[in-house]
Deep mutational scan, measured.
Amino acid sequence: GSSGLPPGWQSYLSPQGRRYYVNTTTNETTWERPSSS
């Protein structure tokens, strides 16, 4: 899909309704949208 996220990243919603991002390669999580640069 065209999520616009860098490879390996997925976006999720927290129980509070906030969006966060997870790097499935490194298990890093961040509130900031990852850049593909």
Rank of each mutant, 00 (worst) to 15 (best):
G1L: 13
G1A: 13
G1D: 14
G1W: 06
G1Y: 07
G1K: 06
G1M: 11
G1S: 13
S2F: 10
S2P: 13
S2Q: 12
S2W: 07
S2I: 13
S2L: 11
S2G: 13
S2A: 13
S2E: 14
S2D: 14
S3Q: 14
S3E: 15
S3V: 13
S3A: 14
S3K: 10
S3F: 15
S3R: 12
S3T: 14
S3I: 14
S3Y: 15
G4Y: 10
G4N: 10
G4S: 11
G4F: 10
G4E: 12
G4A: 13
L5Q: 02
L5K: 02
L5Y: 03
L5E: 14
L5P: 04
L5M: 06
P6G: 04
P6V: 04
P6D: 04
P6W: 05
P6S: 04
P6N: 03
P6T: 04
P6Y: 04
P7H: 10
P7Y: 09
P7M: 08
P7I: 08
P7R: 08
P7T: 08
P7N: 08
P7D: 11
P7L: 09
P7K: 08
P7W: 10
G8I: 03
G8Y: 07
G8S: 05
G8A: 04
G8N: 08
G8E: 07
G8V: 03
G8H: 07
G8P: 09
W9A: 00
W9Q: 00
W9M: 01
W9G: 00
W9Y: 02
W9I: 02
W9L: 01
W9K: 00
W9P: 01
W9V: 01
Q10S: 09
Q10I: 15
Q10Y: 13
Q10M: 14
Q10T: 14
Q10C: 15
Q10E: 14
Q10V: 15
Q10D: 08
S11H: 04
S11V: 12
S11Q: 10
S11F: 06
S11W: 09
S11M: 15
S11L: 07
S11P: 03
S11A: 12
S11E: 15
Y12R: 09
Y12L: 08
Y12K: 07
Y12F: 15
Y12G: 06
Y12T: 04
Y12P: 00
Y12Q: 05
Y12M: 09
L13G: 01
L13W: 09
L13V: 11
L13A: 03
L13K: 05
L13Q: 05
L13N: 04
L13E: 06
L13Y: 07
S14R: 01
S14D: 15
S14M: 03
S14E: 04
S14L: 03
S14F: 01
S14I: 01
S14K: 01
S14Q: 01
S14G: 09
S14V: 03
P15I: 06
P15Q: 07
P15L: 07
P15K: 09
P15F: 06
P15D: 08
P15E: 08
P15M: 07
P15W: 05
Q16I: 07
Q16H: 10
Q16K: 10
Q16L: 11
Q16E: 15
Q16G: 14
Q16M: 10
Q16Y: 08
Q16V: 06
G17S: 02
G17I: 00
G17E: 01
G17Q: 03
G17F: 04
G17Y: 03
G17D: 01
G17K: 03
G17T: 01
R18D: 10
R18Q: 11
R18P: 02
R18F: 09
R18W: 07
R18T: 10
R18K: 11
R18M: 09
R18A: 08
R18N: 08
R18V: 14
R19K: 08
R19V: 15
R19P: 12
R19A: 07
R19W: 15
R19S: 04
R19G: 01
R19E: 10
R19D: 04
R19M: 13
R19Q: 07
R19I: 15
Y20T: 02
Y20F: 10
Y20G: 03
Y20N: 00
Y20M: 05
Y20S: 01
Y20V: 07
Y20I: 06
Y20H: 01
Y20Q: 01
Y21P: 00
Y21N: 00
Y21E: 00
Y21F: 07
Y21R: 00
Y21L: 00
Y21A: 00
Y21T: 00
Y21W: 11
Y21K: 00
V22L: 09
V22I: 11
V22R: 08
V22T: 05
V22N: 01
V22H: 08
V22W: 08
N23W: 04
N23V: 01
N23T: 00
N23Y: 06
N23H: 06
N23D: 04
N23K: 04
N23F: 06
N23R: 03
T24M: 11
T24Y: 08
T24R: 08
T24V: 11
T24G: 06
T24E: 08
T24S: 10
T24A: 10
T25L: 15
T25V: 15
T25Y: 15
T25E: 14
T25S: 12
T25M: 14
T25N: 11
T25D: 11
T26G: 02
T26D: 02
T26F: 02
T26N: 05
T26R: 03
T26A: 03
T26Y: 03
T26M: 03
T26K: 03
T26H: 01
T26V: 02
T26L: 05
N27G: 15
N27E: 06
N27Y: 08
N27L: 12
N27R: 10
N27W: 12
N27M: 13
N27A: 09
N27F: 10
N27P: 03
E28A: 06
E28S: 04
E28N: 04
E28F: 07
E28C: 12
E28K: 06
T29S: 08
T29A: 10
T29E: 07
T29L: 15
T29N: 05
T29H: 13
T29V: 15
T29G: 05
T30V: 10
T30A: 06
T30K: 06
T30G: 02
T30Q: 11
T30H: 05
T30I: 08
T30R: 10
W31F: 11
W31E: 05
W31M: 06
W31A: 05
W31P: 03
W31Y: 10
W31N: 05
W31T: 06
W31Q: 04
W31V: 05
E32G: 04
E32S: 08
E32V: 13
E32P: 01
E32H: 10
E32L: 11
E32A: 07
E32R: 09
E32D: 11
R33A: 09
R33S: 07
R33D: 07
R33H: 12
R33I: 09
R33Y: 12
R33Q: 07
R33P: 10
R33V: 09
R33F: 13
P34H: 01
P34V: 02
P34I: 02
P34C: 01
P34T: 01
P34F: 02
P34G: 01
P34A: 01
P34D: 01
P34K: 01
P34S: 02
S35P: 13
S35G: 14
S35M: 14
S35I: 13
S35Q: 12
S35E: 12
S35Y: 11
S35W: 10
S36E: 13
S36L: 14
S36A: 14
S36Q: 11
S36N: 12
S36R: 08
S36T: 12
S36W: 15
S36I: 13
S36P: 11
S37V: 14
S37Y: 11
S37T: 12
S37K: 11
S37F: 12
S37P: 14
S37A: 13
